[in-house]
Design a protein around this nucleic acid. Sequence first.
DNA 1: GCCAACGTTGGC
DNA 2: GCCAACGTTGGC
Length: 139
Amino acid sequence: MRYWLFKSEPDVWGWDAQVAKGAAGEEWNGVRNYQARNNMRAMELGDRGFFYHSNQGREIVGIVEVCKLAHPDSTTDDPRWECVDIKAVRPMGRAVTLDEAKADPRLADMVLVNNSRLSVQPVTEDEWRVICELGGVEP
DNA sequence: GCCAACGTTGGC
DNA sequence: GCCAACGTTGGC
């Protein structure tokens, strides 16, 4: 099992919208970046991810699970773009902000801290534990 | 709202 | 295959 982080602007697709989809989950569509797509192709069923609000909030608000492997993105006819489906698992006990992540030396190498542009990114097991600790949830 | 960083496109 | 131009993301 691997760990990931999904970014979305809360105005466009936020945690509440994800939760509303329930156990069925929803396509993480709209990604038009090869690196992000490749990360989704590498995902397996049951992999966990953080749900991050970019721009407004700039914080990790919840935990999601991959519930469908990479498949063509229904929002485009371009066969290059694929996406997985994810479902909400649980909210963080307390949102973990980008500032907190930046301030914690254990997260100095985290992609979130170092590459603000990548919208679907890998998270190491150590980073996962640290964020869960800060957010007050079981890893 | 600005702009730096980054990725993509397309002419040559 | 290089690189200038352009578009987008996302922190600030």
